[in-house]
């Protein structure tokens, strides 16, 4: 007997668009940023298939609007802790494509000098505290960063990105409790893509994030995570309140994982109907359509895409000509030198 394949049933995005609250220029800017992540990851997909990217990679294709929408409300001094699926977070937070691709191709010129790879891209200078190979770990790192912001008296905020699957980790409870208790400027962003590896959320969780957050009196907002306008609108509203001292908030973005859990995962466990429905929910295509409706011509859209593609290609070329990391330099960085931090 063949079992019916499970579907992601945590609430599929509606596909409705609401570009009215945002200027065309702003939307065009968001479009460029969405496309940057999309084209970068499509390029990675190819590089990985060609054997140029060692290890394994988790792509965020289909989830770009979460990264771009949330980061639209942040500034450099705000900090984010990311996940194993962190390319979009890193690029949206401002990571240069050169350093990003060089890292993925394991070059010394990479943001982590070829020591971290896909699951560890980080750049403290732009407040990107790292992708993370440990599910849920970013929650407590962001908690500590929020604590630092508050202790130092800034009105910067910290953001913890986590997947729906990560909600089953005990750290979520600990961090919600502490953030609420201490009124920390910590934004919990759940990227609910309906899947944790090969198991749908319904088989991971007995609760909804909204109910859990309510238990800690942490305000919870649920948005269509494939609608960048909705995500950025919610993020701006939430972040503004947090800068005024509102304490922690939760933003749940319902989104879609288009590729497999990792590259090479053929997703045989997913319902064909669910996969077929993904194209209509594409967060990048939706913005292109919105822009077209607002009068931006095909040529202008094409130009944005061409500009992005050119930047991606240049970064890939730069990475390819990079150097192999030095083992001696790596050994020297196990510990920081000196008696003082």
């Amino acid at each position: 007997m063949t079992r019916p394949k499970p579907k992601a049933t945590t609430g599929v995005p509606t596909g409705r668009n609401n570009p009215s609250e945002i200027s065309r220029d702003h939307l065009a800017d968001l479009y460029g940023r969405l496309l940057t992540i999309r084209r970068a990851e499509e390029r990675l997909q190819k590089l990985f298939a060609d054997g140029e990217v060692p290890g394994f990679i988790h792509l965020s294709i289909g989830q770009e609007a979460v990264s771009v929408g949330v980061m639209d409300a942040l500034r450099d001094a705000d900090t984010i802790a990311s996940t194993h699926r962190g390319h979009g977070h890193a690029i949206a937070k401002g990571m240069a494509l050169e350093g990003f691709f060089a890292e993925l191709l394991a070059r010394d010129e990479g943001v982590c000098r070829g020591r971290g790879g896909s699951m560890h891209v980080a750049d403290m200078k732009i407040g990107m505290l790292g992708a993370n190979g440990i599910v849920g770990a970013g929650l407590s790192i962001a908690l500590g960063s929020a604590l630092a912001h508050k202790t130092r008296g800034t009105n910067d905020i910290a953001v913890a990105f986590f997947g729906d699957g990560a909600q089953a980790e005990g750290l979520l409870h600990e961090c919600l409790n502490i953030a609420a208790l201490w009124k920390l400027p910590l934004l919990f962003v759940c990227e609910n893509n309906g899947w944790g590896e090969f198991l749908p959320t319904t088989k991971h969780l007995a609760f909804q994030l909204g109910d859990l957050a309510a238990a800690y009196r942490v305000p919870h907002t649920r948005v269509d995570g494939n609608d960048v306008v909705a995500v950025q609108a919610a993020a701006h509203r939430i972040v503004e309140a947090m800068r005024e001292g509102a304490g922690p908030m939760a933003l749940e973005c319902v989104t879609t994982r288009v590729r497999g859990h990792f590259e090479g995962d053929a997703q045989k466990y997913r319902d064909p109907d669910e996969l077929a429905a993904l194209a209509a929910l594409d967060p990048v295509r939706r913005v292109a359509d919105q822009l077209a409706a607002l009068g931006l011509g095909a040529a202008a859209l094409e130009a944005i895409d061409a500009g992005v593609a050119q930047k991606v290609e240049a970064a890939v070329a730069h990475a390819r000509t990079g150097t192999d990391p030095s083992f001696e330099a790596a050994c020297a960085d196990v510990y920081a030198e000196g008696g003082r931090a």
């Binding site: 900090t79 802790a81 403290m124 505290l129 770990a137 929650l139 407590s140 790192i141 962001a142 908690l143 500590g144 960063s145 929020a146 604590l147 630092a148 912001h149 202790t151 130092r152 910290a158 005990g170 750290l171 600990e174 961090c175 409790n177 502490i178 208790l181 931090a341």
Partner: peptide, 22 residues
Amino acid sequence: TPISEAALAGAAVGAAVSGLKP
């Protein structure tokens, strides 16, 4: 602090990379 050792240790890491010495 609450009795949350895992979160506290993670928070120490987050604070340490954000300018404090916890």
